[in-house]
Simulated scan of single mutants.
Amino acid sequence: MLGRIAVITLFLGFLSLGVQSAQQDDQECGSFDEDQMLKQNNFAIPTEHQWVARIVYGKGFEGKIKNNGCLGVLVSKRTVLAPAHCFVQYNGVAEAFSVHLGVYNKSAPVGVRVCETDGYCTRPAQEIKLAEIAIHPEYDSRSLKNCLAVLTLQREAKIYPNVMPICMPPPNLMNETLVAQTFIVAGLRIFEDLRLKTWVNTLSRPFCQEKVKTLVTRGNTVCGYHARKEAYYLGAPLVGMQKKGRTTQNFYLVGILIDWGWDGERVMSSFLAIRNYMDFIQQNSHSLIVRS
């Protein structure tokens, strides 16, 4: 039954947060700063990887999935992508309630300004309820094949320096290999509070399956080791760097984390490659941003 789930619509009331800020360009996405990118021994500060969204369930942040937490990635003002198994439970019911945007510390209260001990004072995180969850029609809950959900928010996200969509994969990179590449994964972590980032070196599927036999890998996934020994919530975005001429232009979305495991002291993750699902995403999304 769960392998053929179409669209689940949640009829929810609207929530309005009084967050005041100037709107940025509607076409702004994937903010990139070389100085920030190179500080890989530090946390992903509030103005880095601002597309990370925390999934909220009816009874709190934890769902009935591996390691309790799930993330999504903001791809437009009203669209978030996330793994399907964060929503579809064994009874076939989607239990998600809303998303939180702009979360830097997962333990901090939502809707209030927070100043951390590291010196960062962040804008209030936004909570936006879900209007609709579109599960890929060929999703298989047992194998995690086509494990993708497109979430429609009830209202537009307010865009400011710590909340911004990620750019979608550029057309000229759609057919490039995803193996033997270096990308970045960023998100909230299982064992710590602050958002982090780390390099991911991608490898062949046979190699990943040999090293971590339980890891979910398929033809539409990309896998690899984390440079740092950190485990992230499912749904953490894997991003690449798009260049224009000799200048790096922006980050773009490569994949979303659907499974991970340990190889000794190293973390290996598997990501659903987003470029394989652009038609489904476009059919269920609002105003995706693609840089040429």
Rank of each mutant, 00 (worst) to 15 (best):
K243T: 09
T202D: 02
D279N: 12
N172S: 12
P83V: 02
D26C: 06
C86K: 05
G245R: 09
L178M: 12
I281Y: 01
D193L: 11
G255P: 00
L151N: 01
L153P: 04
L253A: 04
S204Y: 06
G111S: 05
S98I: 06
F61N: 13
A6V: 07
R189C: 13
N201L: 12
D279G: 05
G261W: 04
D259T: 02
G102D: 10
Y252T: 00
P46V: 07
P169L: 01
L178I: 11
F97H: 13
N41D: 14
C115Y: 06
M241R: 14
D118G: 03
I55L: 15
Q242N: 12
Q24G: 07
V19W: 00
V93E: 15
P109F: 02
Q27G: 07
L144F: 10
S143W: 05
A53L: 07
K39E: 15
Y57V: 04
R78S: 14
H85C: 10
S287D: 15
T202A: 00
G264H: 08
Y104D: 08
G60P: 04
L144G: 01
I133H: 03
G18E: 13
L272A: 05
T214I: 08
G240S: 01
Q27V: 02
K59Q: 15
I184C: 02
S285L: 03
F14W: 08
D259P: 00
G264D: 11
Y104Q: 05
R266D: 14
T248H: 10
R113P: 01
R218D: 13
L215P: 02
G111N: 03
M168E: 03
R189E: 12
G92S: 09
H85N: 14
R218M: 14
S270N: 04
I133P: 01
T198D: 04
V150C: 01
K243W: 09
S269N: 07
F32Y: 15
N68A: 12
I184K: 03
L288S: 00
H136I: 09
I8G: 05
L71A: 10
F207V: 11
P169K: 01
C223Q: 02
L101H: 08
H286V: 11
G60Q: 08
S21K: 11
Y277E: 07
D259V: 03
E127C: 04
Y104A: 06
D259K: 02
L203A: 10
L148K: 06
L10A: 10
F183R: 05
I281G: 07
Y104S: 07
L81R: 00
R246S: 11
R78M: 11
G63K: 00
C223K: 00
K145Q: 13
N201P: 01
K59L: 14
Q283D: 13
V112D: 03
V75C: 01
R142H: 10
W51A: 12
L153F: 09
N172D: 15
W260E: 13
D193H: 10
A94W: 03
K229R: 15
M268A: 06
C147G: 09
F61I: 11
T182E: 15
V73S: 13
L17Y: 07
D35Q: 12
K211A: 11
A231P: 00
W199N: 14
Q282W: 08
P237I: 09
G58V: 08
T248A: 10
I133C: 08
I258E: 11
